[in-house]
């Protein structure tokens, strides 16, 4: 069998990637996890996770991921801060190209997750970090007693808008339909919260501001066509995600939305290459589903590597 730098390279150190590394480490594979930013993934920005089993009162995203990282390191996981430029996926050797060279492995797990989707409206990029945000836990305290807009209707939008109400005087949650997609318990909390006002059937069309950052947003009712200007000092955007697949070669099949297509064994269209977590074609993007994907992908990678011998 060919010699490689590692048995397994995992790309992405979020819940899926770190769980994969934990399982592979316990199978005594040599495992490297590559992470372009900081270990933890998108869940780092979540202020409180109530639906991940085992934490009776819940846990913050940052604390959960600190624990997972430490746990995976116990079983020999190596991590490296590096962004993958491209993949070269041969039959027995997979090469992962970085900016400063290449690493080889017998198997690769892609767990690069997804990034918050942008609205694509005027002002969004201009005022990024100056009122436009996707991270309530990072930025909410800057909006003490302020008026804030939020966009979305799923779990993240409602959960994080509720968090914003602890600081902001008023949060306008702008949602394009006449009902929320978020879990019922979150909807109930949203309806009861006097500082949260849901603006139904509406889309945000522009983020306005000046030298000091965001000063307002323009909102259009999709049923009546009416345009309204809201005075706000912040605008939080939670309208889904886009997969992080820029480095993924064409031999790996993607679905129509750009997520990596895998079967129930997390196998991609290339043998020995797996995808797990938010980056794949999954009906649910949660920590609970990502760790399950990571465990399956690692287990399959372990079998794959054994069969190479």
């Amino acid at each position: 069998m060919s010699q490689t730098d590692y048995d397994l390279i995992v790309i992405g150190a979020g819940p899926a990637g770190l769980t994969a590394a934990l399982y592979a480490g316990r199978a005594r594979l040599s495992v490297l996890v590559l992470e372009k930013a900081a270990p933890g993934g998108q869940i780092l920005v979540s202020d409180w996770i109530e639906n991940y089993p085992g934490f009776v009162e819940g846990i913050s995203g940052a604390d959960l991921m600190t624990n997972v990282l430490e746990q995976a390191r116990r079983f020999g996981m190596e991590t490296r801060s590096a962004e993958v430029a491209s993949l070269d996926l041969g039959d027995t050797v997979k090469r992962v190209h970085l900016s400063d060279g290449a690493l080889s492995a017998k198997s690769v797990i892609i767990a690069t997750g997804a990034s918050p989707r942008k609205l694509g409206v005027p002002g969004e990029n201009t005022f990024w970090g100056q009122g436009v945000s996707t991270c309530a836990t990072c930025d909410a305290p800057f909006y003490r007693d302020s008026l804030v807009a939020a966009v979305g209707g799923g779990d993240t939008a409602v959960q994080e808008s509720l968090f914003l109400t602890r600081f902001a005087k008023k949060v306008y949650l702008i949602h394009r339909r006449d009902q929320l997609r978020a879990a019922r318990i979150l909807q109930e909390r949203a309806f009861e919260n006097e500082r949260l006002e849901i603006i139904w059937d509406s889309v945000l069309t522009e983020i306005k501001g000046g030298a000091s950052g965001v000063t307002g947003v323009a909102v259009k009712n999709v049923k009546t066509g009416d345009l309204t200007d809201l005075t706000v000092h912040g605008c939080f955007v939670w309208v889904g995600t886009v997969p992080n697949t820029g480095f993924v070669p064409a031999v790996i099949d993607l679905d129509a939305a750009g997520f990596i297509t895998v079967n129930s064994r997390m196998e991609t269209s290339v043998p020995g290459v797996y995808a797990a977590g938010d980056v794949r074609n999954t009906p649910l993007r949660q920590v609970a589903t990502a760790v399950g994907d990571g465990a399956i992908a690692a287990s399959e990678a372990i079998h794959y590597i054994e069969n190479l011998k």
Binding site: A37, A38, P39, G40, L44, V45, S46, S60, G61, A62, M65, T66, C135, T137, C138, P141
Partner: peptide, 8 residues
């Protein structure tokens, strides 16, 4: 209170 701050 900022998770990403701790992470970087």
């Amino acid at each position: 209170w900022c998770g990403p701050c701790k992470a970087i």
